[in-house]
Simulated assay, not measured.
Amino acid sequence: MIVLTRLNDAQFAINPDLIERIHSNPDTTLVMVDGAKFIVTESMDEVIALIAQFRARVISMARDVPAVPFRHGAGLGLVPAAGSGGKPAENDSSTKTVPLRPRNK
C-alpha cells in the first residue's frame, strides 16, 4: 500500500496494483481499475516514485524470506495424500461424495 493525501489533507492508503491510469491536468487524479477516481495533492512523478518504492520494498522482503526446499510432487502438507493412512473413515457422513446428475435440457 502507498499513502497519499487528498485535497482536504486527509491521508489514505491505496493498493498501487489497482491503479489503471494517472492524470495530472491540473490536479493529479488516480483512475482505478474499477473506475473509482481519487484526486491527490502529490504530483504524478511523486506517485510513480512511491509505486516504485513500494514494489522495490516487496521484492526486498521476498528476498529475505528463507527458501523452503521443494520436492516435486510433495504437496504442501495441508491435506493427507491419498493412501497415506490419513484418509477419513468410510462411515463419516461429512466426507461422503454426492454423485453429479446430468443437466436438465
Rank of each mutant, 00 (worst) to 15 (best):
M1D: 06
M1K: 10
M1F: 07
M1A: 05
M1R: 08
I2N: 05
I2G: 02
I2V: 12
V3S: 04
V3M: 11
L4F: 04
L4I: 05
T5A: 11
T5E: 07
R6Q: 06
L7Q: 12
N8K: 03
N8I: 01
D9N: 12
A10R: 07
A10L: 10
Q11W: 11
Q11I: 07
Q11N: 02
A13P: 06
A13T: 00
A13Y: 03
A13L: 08
A13V: 08
I14H: 06
N15Q: 06
N15L: 00
D17Y: 15
D17N: 15
L18K: 02
L18F: 09
L18D: 07
I19R: 07
E20A: 14
E20G: 00
R21Y: 08
H23L: 10
S24A: 13
S24Q: 10
N25T: 13
N25C: 12
P26R: 03
P26L: 05
D27S: 05
D27P: 08
D27I: 06
L30R: 11
L30T: 06
L30I: 01
M32W: 03
V33Q: 08
V33F: 09
V33L: 09
D34E: 05
D34W: 06
G35S: 05
A36W: 08
A36T: 10
K37A: 12
K37M: 12
F38Y: 12
F38P: 04
F38G: 10
F38H: 04
I39S: 09
I39P: 00
I39Y: 09
V40D: 03
V40M: 02
E42P: 08
E42T: 03
S43H: 05
M44I: 12
M44R: 14
M44L: 14
D45S: 15
D45L: 15
D45P: 10
D45Y: 13
D45G: 14
E46A: 11
E46D: 09
E46N: 08
E46M: 02
I48D: 00
A49S: 14
A49Y: 11
A49D: 12
L50D: 04
L50C: 04
L50Y: 08
I51C: 10
I51H: 09
A52C: 05
F54S: 03
R55K: 13
A56W: 04
A56Y: 06
R57N: 10
R57L: 02
V58H: 08
I59Y: 04
I59N: 00
I59P: 00
I59L: 05
I59K: 11
A62F: 13
A62K: 15
A62V: 13
R63N: 15
D64T: 15
V65E: 06
P66R: 09
P66F: 01
A67W: 11
A67F: 13
A67C: 08
V68S: 07
P69V: 15
P69G: 10
F70A: 04
R71W: 01
H72K: 14
H72W: 11
H72L: 14
G73S: 09
G73L: 03
G73F: 08
G73K: 03
G73A: 07
A74V: 07
A74D: 02
G75R: 01
G75V: 00
